[in-house]
C-alpha cells in the first residue's frame, strides 16, 4: 500500500482454520495488509468472505492459525490472553452491530465505564457530544433508538482515545437514514481525532467514504481500491 504514513497494523500471510465438527473451514487463506495511521478503511465482502474473522484477529479477539499480526511492530499473533486483553483495553475501540450497551447503565455511565479503564480518557460528556448525544446523557439504552444506541457505542469506543476503531457492521441493524448519522459520527471521530478506523460492511456504498476499500473474497484479499474523493455519508443512499 502506497501510503507515506507509518502503518499501525500489519498483517502478514494470515490464515485461520476453524474446525467445524470434522470439517476444516479455511476462513482466511493468506492475508497481507498494512493499515496506516489515521486511515479510514472499509472492508467489503459477502458473507463468509472472512472479513469478521480478520477483524477479530486484528482486534485481539482471536489468534491466526499461521502468519503474523504486528501492532506498531509488536507481534500479537502469539500473544496470550492477558496481553491481548491489555491490547484491547489500551489501544482498540470496538463498535458492534448490535451496540452491546449495558442495559442497566445510562448513556453517560456506559461511556464512563470504559473511560475508567485508561489513564487519559476524554470526558464522557465530550465523547457523547462528538456523536451528537449530549442531550441524552441520562437515558438508559431501553429509552434510546437503535441509531442513538449505536452513537453511544461509538462514544464509548472513542472516550479512551484509542489508536484503532474497529467497527463490525455498525449500520447493519439500522435503516439508511439512521445509518448515515452513525457513519457521520465515525467520520468525524476519524477526522478530528485522527483515529485509525476500520469498518466492516457488506454494503458497498459505504466504501465511498473510505481512504482505502479492501474487498475480501473466499479468505483472500480480492482487491484494494483507494477512492480519489471521499464522499460524505449524508450523500449516500442504500
Amino acid at each position: 500500500m502506497a501510503d507515506s504514513r507509518e502503518p499501525v497494523l500489519q498483517a502478514r500471510d494470515l490464515t485461520r482454520v476453524f474446525l467445524m465438527g470434522e470439517v476444516e473451514v479455511h476462513a482466511l487463506r493468506g492475508i497481507d495488509l498494512d493499515i496506516a495511521q489515521g486511515a479510514f478503511i472499509v472492508l467489503l465482502g459477502p458473507s463468509g468472505s472472512g472479513k469478521s474473522t480478520l477483524l477479530n484477529i486484528l482486534g485481539g479477539l482471536d489468534i491466526p492459525t499461521s502468519g503474523q499480526v504486528l501492532y506498531r511492530g509488536a507481534d500479537l499473533s502469539g500473544a496470550g490472553e492477558r496481553v491481548r486483553t491489555l491490547y484491547r483495553r489500551e489501544h482498540v475501540g470496538f463498535v458492534f452491530q448490535f451496540y452491546n450497551l449495558i442495559p442497566s447503565l445510562t448513556a453517560r455511565e456506559n461511556v464512563a465505564l470504559v473511560a475508567d479503564l485508561v489513564d487519559d480518557p476524554m470526558a464522557p460528556e465530550e465523547a457523547l457530544d462528538m456523536v451528537g448525544m449530549a442531550s441524552r446523557l441520562d437515558h438508559f439504552p431501553s429509552q434510546l433508538s437503535g441509531g442513538e444506541q449505536q452513537r453511544v457505542a461509538i462514544a464509548r469506543a472513542v472516550v479512551k482515545r484509542p489508536d484503532l476503531m474497529l467497527c463490525d457492521e455498525p449500520t447493519g441493524a439500522l435503516d439508511c437514514k439512521t445509518g448515515r448519522i452513525v457513519l457521520e459520527a465515525l467520520q468525524r471521530v476519524n477526522r478530528e481525532l485522527g483515529t485509525t478506523t476500520a469498518v466492516i460492511t457488506h454494503n458497498a456504498v459505504i466504501g465511498e467514504m473510505a481512504d482505502t476499500v479492501i474487498t475480501l473474497g473466499a479468505g483472500r484479499v480480492a482487491s484494494i481500491h483507494e477512492p480519489t474523493e471521499r464522499m460524505s455519508p449524508s450523500r449516500m443512499n442504500w
Partner: peptide, 14 residues
C-alpha cells in the same frame, strides 16, 4: 453472559 463478554471485548480483564 452477553454483558460479560461485551466487557471482555472492551478490554475488561477476567
Amino acid at each position: 453472559s452477553r454483558e460479560l463478554a461485551s466487557l471482555r471485548v472492551l478490554g475488561f480483564t477476567q
